[in-house]
Amino acid sequence: MRHVHWVKNLKELIRRTSTDLPADVEGSIRRALKHEARNSHASWVLGTILENAALARKQGVPLCQDTGTMIFHFGVPVGFDTNALLASTRDAVALATRDGYLRQNTVDAITGASFATNVAPSSPVVSFQQGARKTVDVRLILKGGGSENMGHQYSLPDTDLDAGRDLEGVRRCVLDAAWRAQGNGCAPGVLGVCIGGDRSTGYWHSKEQFLRRLNDRSEVTVLARLEERIMRDARRLGIGPMGLGGRTTLLGVKVGAVSRVPASYFVTVSYMCWAFRRRGVLLGPEGGVQRWMY
């Protein structure tokens, strides 16, 4: 395995993720703009967002200065050397930081001291999954802190929300999370929702929903219907882009479900801002690019 090769292409993945908003996200913002009144706050915000996306892509600069938590999902062949892959990933992060595609954005939890390269304990975040495959599937999400702060976890039943242990209860939790967030996670955002799990897997799977394309449809019919219903409801909240009012409060809701123990029924909601930075790449056994994704 040639280290430099991997580092180069992983760094390119970071560059693309930070500077180039995916087409599905940009398309949904463009469609949203058509539904907002002319000269409204909402159209001003959405127009600026689209201008920003185009400018960042053209100039190759980060869309947003908060380049957030770097979350890498790797799918690797059975027996693949994940230690070497992790080392390459860390080097790629350090180089991308040096070149201004990532902000120096990682600090010591206690002292607040900055890690100059963004490489630190639990940074970047990585997960490896082995499977019957020949290539390495890499997906990267950059998740900004402002949006991360808007996540919520509910333990059902929740009497304040009148949310029982059923899908209506889930709907109530998700709408509550959307309301609490107002514009503070840089609305319009996307909600990733996980039903079930324990507290930690709930958050993990809620964020895995962000790997889905905005225009896909859940394979689970009832969840697909739930997603549509929540989107319809959210349009009526009137929170709008940046919480300044308008029709576009959310760009999407993606709901997944995993198992749970009978005693717990968690509904976990993660918020992704409009600067939804998600890219992927398929790398061959020697680290060469086979295909870019999203």
């Binding site: 915000v45 201008e51 960042a56 100039q59 600069v61 980060p62 869309l63 947003c64 908060d66 801002c273």
Partner: peptide
């Protein structure tokens, strides 16, 4: 004043 959140490139310009 509220600036457009996330509009890092436009505001840098």
């Amino acid at each position: 004043l509220q600036a457009v959140g996330g509009a890092g490139a436009v505001l840098a310009r």
